[in-house]
């Protein structure tokens, strides 16, 4: 903003914005703090904010019990696998629509977007049944496929938006110099598209990591990711706030960090380019 602002105004703005920001962040902060308390301190009356005996005990307990590593591994495989598979399928598709558009390109894009709006619950049973028939219920591969499919429209759209911004002249120049289609994709487009592909991957890993309809309904003991692991705390026994907090902190920390890097791409990615 070009307007000159008085120092007082700036101080008030800063104070107000920080107060609101901290209030919104508070539940996460509280979870992180609680994860370092003992169970007794976690429910102390009055609540203790910082003056408790910091301990890593909860993390140790959570890691040891209930194969935490297995859930984490499932989350990584499912989020990473579905995103990678999606990108591999989406790159050629987005490439062809961005550089060799036809009359139907717009319709195809819109149709892809429309598949994203199919309510999951409407097709829950068919997918459930197909998974049983194919023997992939409660398997990593099954969830990789489903999450790839639900995020594929977003991946195609994001890549399409990025590819559109690559100037066509460069490609023409390459073609004049005798580059084949394959060379064009590998040596020219890919390097230029890397930032776009990277942010697409980032956003989709986040979405897949946090997906909590299919991951809860299509997994049981074997392929359950962290979303399901956390949900198992919904009917616990005994004192568990500190352990719940430790488990939660571990489940959200990687994504919080990734998320903060992706905030710029988030807007155009999630609004399908309608807001930039």
């Amino acid at each position: 903003m070009a307007r000159a602002v008085t120092p007082q105004r700036k101080i008030i703005n800063t104070a107000a914005a920080w107060a609101v920001g901290l209030a919104i962040f508070f539940p996460i902060l509280w979870t992180i703090l609680t994860s370092f308390k003992t169970e007794a301190q976690a429910i102390a009356d009055p609540p203790i904010f910082l003056g408790f005996d910091w301990t890593l005990e909860n993390y140790k307990v959570v890691m040891e019990r209930s194969d935490y590593a297995k859930y984490l591994w499932n989350s990584i495989i499912i989020a990473g696998g579905s995103t990678l598979l999606g990108v591999i399928i989406a790159v050629p598709a987005a490439w062809s629509m961005a550089f060799v558009p036809s009359r139907r390109t717009k319709d195809i894009l819109m149709w892809m977007l429309s598949t994203k709006m199919l309510p999951a619950v409407g097709v829950l049973y068919p997918i459930y049944l197909l998974f049983i028939k194919l023997g992939i219920l409660d398997s990593q591969i099954g969830l990789v496929i489903v999450l790839m499919l639900i995020n594929l429209p977003i991946i195609v759209w994001m890549l399409y938006t990025y590819f559109k911004e690559i100037p066509g002249e460069i490609l023409e120049a390459a073609r004049m110099d005798g580059a084949t289609l394959k060379e064009e994709v590998i040596y020219i487009l890919t390097p230029m598209a890397v930032p776009g592909i990277a942010s697409t991957i980032l956003l989709n890993v986040i979405l897949a990591w946090n997906e909590a309809f299919w991951t809860l309904n299509l997994t049981a003991a074997k392929a359950a990711p962290l979303t399901a692991f956390i949900a198992s705390y919904s009917s616990p026994e005994g004192l568990f706030y500190a352990k719940l907090s430790a488990a939660s902190t571990m489940a959200i920390a990687p994504i919080l960090i990734l998320g903060w890097f992706s905030q710029k791409q988030l807007v155009s990615g999630l609004t399908f380019g309608a807001v930039k």
Binding site: F25, W30, T227, S234, I252, L256, G259, W260
Partner: peptide, 21 residues
């Protein structure tokens, strides 16, 4: 960053944290 954070919290975590804590 503080304001955006809740969006990255998985739904099962935010629901359970709110419910219990």
């Amino acid at each position: 960053i503080l304001v955006i954070a809740p969006f990255f919290v998985m739904p099962t975590v935010s629901a359970l944290v709110w419910k219990n804590m």
